[in-house]
Design a protein around this nucleic acid. Structure first.
Length: 110
DNA sequence: TCAGTGACTGACC
DNA sequence: GGGTCAGCCACTG
């Protein structure tokens, strides 16, 4: 069958789209929800393609520590931080303030 | 084809 | 308590 990987990517996009306004999640959380907890890197790779999609809020996905590790993929600017702050999420030194408070777990909320 | 790399994470010492 | 290692899989040279 051709398209299994595509399905995985689409699944990641679908979950990312479900992230509520003003909330963030982690790569591992999405990976765990999809049943690929050990392939959290693939979620990050999927997000790489998600940036090109305006319907996928990739800026709401950070690493487990709330660190904006992927901000360099947003055009090499502080766009990611700008978008998060625009949603009421405070970001300082590439890290989300009160990360646990804004954290949204798809496996738990979805 | 092989080897290195990466938007991660959990376990181990 | 902080640094290191291994697993995961796709992409690139």
């Amino acid at each position: 069958m051709a398209g299994d990987k595509q399905n995985f990517f689409e699944s990641v996009y679908r979950v990312a789209r479900e992230i509520p306004f003003g909330r963030v999640t982690s790569y591992g959380a999405i990976a765990r929800y999809l049943g690929t907890a050990r392939s959290s890197r693939m979620v990050g790779w999927a997000m790489n393609g998600a940036v090109a999609r305006e319907d996928v809020p990739a800026h709401r996905v950070v690493n487990r520590k709330g660190l904006l590790t992927g901000k360099h993929h947003f055009g090499g600017s502080n766009l990611m931080q700008q978008l998060l702050e625009n949603e009421g999420i405070k970001v300082e030194e590439d890290q989300v303030i009160n990360f646990e408070q804004h954290f949204w777990d798809p496996a738990k909320e979805l």
